[in-house]
Simulated assay, not measured.
Amino acid sequence: MNAVSTLSGRHVVVVGGTSGIGLAVAEHAAAAGARVTVAARTLDLAPAALPAGVTAEHVDLTSTASVEALFDRVGTIDHLVLSVGPGAMGTVRDLSSADARPFMDIKFWGYYDAVRAAADRMAKDGSITLIGGGASRKHAPGRPVMAAINAAIEAFGKANAIDLAPVRVNVIAPGLVDTPAYAGLPDEMRQGMLAGYAASVPAGRAGIPEDVASAALFLMTNTYVTGTVIDVDGGVQVS
């Protein structure tokens, strides 16, 4: 087996693939010749946003039944990428467990259900890539829930690299990436946030979705990489 494989004709499923990082992954995989299925809770903008030939499916990661139904529909999978979940902001003084739990339900337990449902449908030379976040190890005020969720995803990915082998399982931990997740912020606040991050990291800029997408394609095609966490963060972990 070659150390680097092709995506041509392979089936790539991207959960959270209709915007931001997930959409960039879907676009890159389609451009590399993959057959791509994206899944998301909201598909209103999908036909306009997706490359030609990419199939869109509905899924609600807070519902185990919805996740299982998705994987029943999509059939066999070569590569699975999970890229969903809002960031949970607030200290333990601000967020009750009832307020914090939905974030874990979506991003950790949603990922758990997806990996569980996909496990027996994966090609033996396939891969699962979990998009986590740099907050797992680079701590900042008001992010204990975000840190805990992303740390759990990293441990979950490493453990499944053993349990699901030879399927490869990896995690990408992005830093700040300019995505539609921040579209609700006033423009001045959003630009200030991006500029502040750029000034604080060695790369001198905030990320864009394509930065993470290229890392995801690397993990799909390099058959010697498994059980790892790749930081795509401009160097925030060392700053």
Rank of each mutant, 00 (worst) to 15 (best):
I131W: 13
I131S: 06
I131R: 14
I131Q: 07
I131V: 13
I131G: 08
G132E: 01
G132W: 03
G132L: 05
G132M: 05
G132P: 15
G133M: 03
G133W: 09
G133T: 09
G134E: 10
G134C: 09
G134Y: 03
G134P: 04
G134L: 11
A135W: 06
A135F: 07
A135Q: 12
A135I: 07
A135G: 07
S136Y: 13
S136G: 14
S136M: 14
S136A: 15
R137N: 13
R137C: 07
R137P: 06
R137I: 11
K138E: 00
K138V: 04
K138W: 02
K138Q: 09
H139Q: 10
H139K: 11
H139E: 05
P141E: 04
P141A: 13
P141S: 08
P141L: 00
P141R: 06
G142F: 05
G142A: 02
G142R: 02
R143F: 00
R143I: 00
R143T: 03
R143C: 00
R143L: 00
P144Q: 01
P144D: 01
P144H: 02
P144M: 01
P144T: 01
P144R: 02
V145M: 02
V145G: 01
V145S: 08
V145P: 01
V145D: 01
M146D: 04
M146N: 04
M146F: 02
M146Q: 09
M146I: 01
M146E: 10
A147K: 03
A147I: 01
A147T: 00
A148C: 06
A148M: 04
I149H: 02
I149R: 06
I149E: 06
I149W: 12
N150F: 06
N150V: 08
N150S: 11
N150G: 14
N150K: 02
N150E: 11
N150Y: 08
A151F: 00
A151N: 11
A151I: 09
A151R: 05
A152R: 05
A152G: 09
A152S: 15
A152K: 07
A152W: 04
I153C: 10
I153E: 07
E154L: 08
E154D: 13
E154Q: 14
E154R: 14
E154N: 13
A155M: 11
A155G: 15
A155Y: 09
A155N: 15
A155C: 14
F156E: 10
F156W: 08
F156V: 03
F156M: 02
G157L: 00
G157W: 01
G157S: 14
G157F: 00
K158A: 15
A159C: 15
A159W: 11
A159I: 14
N160I: 00
N160D: 12
A161K: 00
A161Y: 05
A161C: 07
I162H: 09
I162F: 11
I162V: 15
D163G: 10
D163R: 13
D163S: 12
L164A: 09
A165N: 07
A165R: 08
A165P: 10
P166E: 06
